[in-house]
């Protein structure tokens, strides 16, 4: 009788305890793209703020044609500043896009997957930096 009672207690505790852990799944990553600019014809400047309460596990940047039909560019972002972190306060990277055929109006896709397998993709239309656009701007 005592054995059966103990077994029941173990099962109950396991259920309650494990259920609690499942409820701790953090929110999915959030991405705010501040800038997606073609600079000097051969570079794509991307600035964003990333938050991932479940820690970043993978980050990638891709560019598709405006109608979404063609994938023109894709690159995984690695490094201790971007992977395994809760937040990237000022994501700022320049990507080499020489000979990729990127044009104004193409769509940047910024994708973050956290350690729980939750994926978020933010999109922004790419613009081109004009010569007279060399003015003060804040990366935040």
């Amino acid at each position: 009788m005592s054995f059966a009672l103990a077994l029941l207690c173990v099962c109950s505790l396991s259920f309650i305890s494990c259920k609690g852990n499942e409820e701790e799944k953090p929110a999915a990553p959030t991405i705010v793209i501040a800038e997606a600019n073609i600079e000097e014809e051969s570079e794509l400047c991307v600035e964003a703020n990333v938050k991932a309460p479940g820690k970043t596990a993978a980050v990638s940047v891709s560019v598709r044609s405006a109608d979404g039909s063609a994938l023109k560019f894709t690159e995984k972002v690695t490094g201790v500043a971007y992977i395994g972190v809760l937040e990237v306060p000022e994501f700022h990277k320049h990507f080499d896009i020489a000979d990729k055929g990127l044009t104004e109006g193409d769509i940047l896709e910024f994708t973050v997957t956290d350690a729980f397998g939750q994926t978020t993709t933010a999109k922004k239309s790419i613009t081109k930096e004009e010569e007279d656009e060399h003015e003060h701007h804040n990366h935040e």
Binding site: V80, A81, E133, E135, H136
Partner: peptide
């Protein structure tokens, strides 16, 4: 860990 990154500021941008 830490990361060091250096880039030009020829366009006079700022950081937070």
């Amino acid at each position: 860990a830490f990361n060091i990154e250096i880039h030009d500021n020829f366009d006079h941008h700022t950081h937070g």
